[in-house]
Structure formats: structure tokens, C-alpha cells
Amino acid sequence: MAETTGRDRLAGMFAAAHAEGRAVLLPYLTAGIPTFDDSVRLFRAMADAGADGFEVGIPYADPLMDGPVIMRAGELALEAGVTVDRALELVKQVVAATSKPTLVMTYVNPVLRRGIDTFFRQVRDADASGVIIADLPADEAGPFLAAAESSGLGLALFVAPTTDDGRLATVLEKKPAFVYAIAEVGVTGERDEASSNTEHLARRIRSRSDLPIVFGVGISTAHHARSAARHGDGVIVGTAIVRRVLEAASVDEAAAALASFVEELAAALRSPLPPD
């Protein structure tokens, strides 16, 4: 019997949630925040509170898609010595501690520096299920998709509110593990209002493909999550998580804050708004 691949695990995660009639909840946290050991504990708290999987950020010195909160977290992690290798060690510990499908989020240069195939193999060896590369557009994705395929990992590709129909077709025909649908024009960070782009984006994607749609960027509250989940198969919540960790006075306080916030998000996804 073939071993389960990362891409299979992601598909299984989407299928299980789909059977329950809900979207998946994928919290994001930068690796090694607030410290290496404490961040494992925070992922465990989020798993217990109802997260379906995780996005673990490899800290990067020049994150073009990130707003000030995730930038700050990356700087702190780099100062604390969280290298790519340490981040992957952490991923392995998170998966061991939570058994949740876990995505590694990075920028393209650390992948290229290591070699695309080596990087994906190491991500697989860290028991992760997939990879998200914030500055990798579909146009340049060929060798990354090939490496994902041969390592059994799922690679996400992006669609933004600015993506036109021609580009959308290009993204979808590459058959990524899921479509990361960017909910807001802008970098990561909290927003006051729920995205007004999700319904239209989802309709455009669904009319052309059955790929799972995961919304990210700007999803900051349970209300936002519920609103996006109505149109997608998953939501990623990043800055709102990272900010709570950075603001906490202690790791106990951070764990408690994440537990209650993730519970709130998970509950919101289990009681979706009725479709329009």
C-alpha cells in the first residue's frame, strides 16, 4: 500500500470538513515565536481549540507580502536564530504534537538557495503536507510544482482580486493542491471590515475548477472568518494570531489568548451564515 502523501493529507482534511459542511481553519504562526519551545506549545493549544491544520512561517528578512506584525515576528525569530533548518525542526515537532496537516510558508529565495528539490524533500522529511511561497506567481511555478509532485507535497498557488480571467485560467490549469485566494488587495494585516471580494473571487474560481479555495489576508475576526468561509473551503488567519502572541506578557497568556480566539474562529466556521 502506498504511503499517504502530504497532498493526500491536505485532501483528506478538506474532505473531512466538507463532510461536516464547513470550511477548514488554518491558523498561521511564524516559527519560533515567542521562542522555539514555546511555539510548539502554542500550536498544540490551537490544535486543541479546533484548528484543522497549520501554516508555519519560515522567518524571512525581506517579506514583501507581509505587513508590520508578521514582519516584526520574522525579525524577532531571525534574531533568536530561527534558521530554515530550525524552522523545519519545529514543523516536525508541531506535526508530532498535533497530528495536523501543516503547511510551510516561505518566500522564494530560501527555497532557491537550498535548491528547489532539496527544499521540498526536507519539508517532506519534516512531515509537513504542503508549501506556500508568497512571492511565487504561477508563471514561475513550474519547477516548484514538479518538486512538490515528486515529494508528494501540495503546493498552493495564488489568485488575487486583481487577477484577470486569463491569469486565473493559467493558475487553475496548473492544478495546485488548493487555491490561496487573497481576500484583500494589500499585504497581510488586520482589517476592520470583512472582505468584500470573497464571493466574487470564489464564483470566478468555482466556475472553472473544483480545486479547494482557501481565503487568506485580512481575515481578522470570527465574523470575517465566517463571512469568507461561506464562499470558500478554508480560511487562513495570520496577523490576528501573531499579534496576540506578540502582545502577550507570558507564554501562558499567549496560549490562553490563542485557545480562546481559535475556539471562537472554529465555532464560527461550524455555524456558518446561510448562503445568500
Partner: peptide
């Protein structure tokens, strides 16, 4: 090449 977030790609084109 162009290694940019998807949000920018249409503007670059």
C-alpha cells in the same frame, strides 16, 4: 523574471 505576489502580477503585465 518576475517573482512578485500575485496581487502585483496583473499590474506588471
Amino acid at each position: 523574471g518576475a517573482f512578485a505576489p500575485e496581487t502585483l502580477m496583473p499590474a506588471l503585465i
